[in-house]
Amino acid sequence: MEKRNSRIGLVLFVIYLVLYGGFVLLNAFSPETMEKTPMAGVNLAILYGFGLIIAALVLALLYGWLCKPAEPEVTERGVNE
């Protein structure tokens, strides 16, 4: 169960890393792109920024939902002590 959780965690982590990395690199190497207003007259900098925050919450909820089934209630404290 522990292994399964950490594998799900890593997959979601990589998804977010790509989104965040894209944002940072776009800001650094093509700041003009961030000034474009693709939707509702709001520029990409704001849309992408809000998108990242919302994506974080969505991925977090997804993780919580995927990890839920059959989690053993007993903690494994003591294994390494």
Partner: peptide
């Protein structure tokens, strides 16, 4: 600051 929480949660 918020992105850092993804590392905290998933890793």
């Amino acid at each position: 600051y918020l992105a850092g929480w993804i590392v905290a949660l998933f890793v």
